[in-house]
């Protein structure tokens, strides 16, 4: 049976603001799942707190709306318990990089096979517009009483340095492009992070849909708007590590970091970095210590006999303590 886009939708009333960039991200995720024909019960969509946190409720798949910043930790536990699950995380910029920063950082060291999608709108929407960790220093959005006094985190650079092995940036209203990024992230074996630029029409009067569309930037020749976002892949940028050799990895990482600081009138979107040579946490465990891990997920392991007694023969273990 072919799964259709509608198979990934729920009947829940969506209470995001009209014009919210989250709608574009939601569609892209649903389209990616449909394109990849991932059965709803095999996908687990996690989220944290904030507007992005509501995403799982709008997707017909296992949906786990967790705590502020902790979605990634929940997701990693689930993936290790059942590596056959397709695990996604709908994260917010404050959620992931602010309160969840520690988890965001350390997940890179593990490279567990999952896909993180950051809903990056520079503000804390649900608490009425405070600056998020991605808002630039000195920027004053309309929700702020004073200009932002803290410097911003660059999510792309952070992800590359932390060890994520697939790092990309998308734009919420370039939905088809975003869908392809999400599909690549899902297919990538390892931790994938996609930072999605997402206008908040209610609290951010700077990074608006018009701003991304470049309505303030007119081509002197044609007089038409010049969109700020452009596709990296159209420029010959090659993010993919080909040999896995250290020198090449460093070169690709450096290139990605440099590119990630391009901002303003020209904003690159697309894949910044991809390295498939780093084993996942699951593979590391399976290769060196627990070969059964990838054959039998812990979730399917039998633990009890029909009479309720343990099915595991504990003799070899208990004999170590016998005196």
């Amino acid at each position: 049976m072919v799964l259709k886009l509608t198979d990934y939708r729920t009947e829940i009333h969506n209470n995001w603001c009209p014009g919210c960039g989250d709608f574009g991200i939601l569609s892209a995720v649903q389209m990616a799942l449909a394109d990849l024909q991932i059965p709803p019960h095999q996908a687990a969509v996690f989220s944290g707190i904030g507007c992005s946190g509501k995403t799982p409720h709008y997707i017909n798949a296992y949906g786990i709306h967790t705590l502020h910043g902790r979605g990634l930790a929940f997701a990693q536990g689930a993936k290790l318990a059942n590596p056959e699950l397709e695990v996604l995380l709908a994260a917010g910029d404050g959620d992931f990089l602010g309160i969840g920063g520690n988890h965001a950082l350390h997940a890179g060291r593990r490279n567990i096979d999952l896909t993180v999608i950051i809903h990056d709108n520079f503000v804390y929407g649900l608490t009425k517009g405070q600056a998020s960790p991605t808002l630039g220093l000195g920027v004053k959005t309309k929700g702020l009483a004073k200009p932002n006094i803290q410097q911003d985190i660059n999510p792309i650079s952070l992800a590359v340095v932390a060890g994520y092995t697939f790092v990309a940036r998308g734009y919420a209203y370039d939905t088809r492009h975003l869908k392809e990024l999400i599909k690549s992230g899902i297919k990538h074996k390892g931790s994938a992070l996609i930072d999605v630029l997402q206008p908040c029409p209610t609290y951010d009067d700077i990074h608006t849909k018009d701003w991304y569309a470049g309505t303030d930037l007119k081509d002197p020749k044609t007089g038409r708007s010049m969109p700020r976002t452009y596709h990296l892949e159209d420029t010959g940028f090659d993010p993919v590590v080909k040999t896995g050799k250290e020198e090449e990895v460093v070169q690709k990482m450096t290139q990605a970091i440099t590119k990630s600081f391009e901002w303003g009138d020209r904003i690159p979107i697309g894949v910044f970095y991809q390295n498939s040579f780093v084993p996942t946490f699951e593979e590391r465990l399976a290769e060196t210590r627990i070969p059964a891990l990838l054959k039998t997920p812990a979730a399917s392991m039998r633990i009890a006999n029909p009479d309720g007694t343990p099915s595991l023969d504990m003799t070899p273990l208990l004999s170590k303590f016998t005196v």
Binding site: A44, F46, I64, T66, L67, R70, A73, F74, A75, Q76, G77, A78, K79, L80, A81, N82, L85, N102, H103, H106, P297, A298, A299, S300, M301
Partner: peptide, 14 residues
């Protein structure tokens, strides 16, 4: 993370 990872694993049936 320790407690929330354990919760995630529990949701998956372990």
């Amino acid at each position: 993370a320790a407690v929330t990872m354990a919760i995630g694993a529990s949701l998956a049936g372990v």
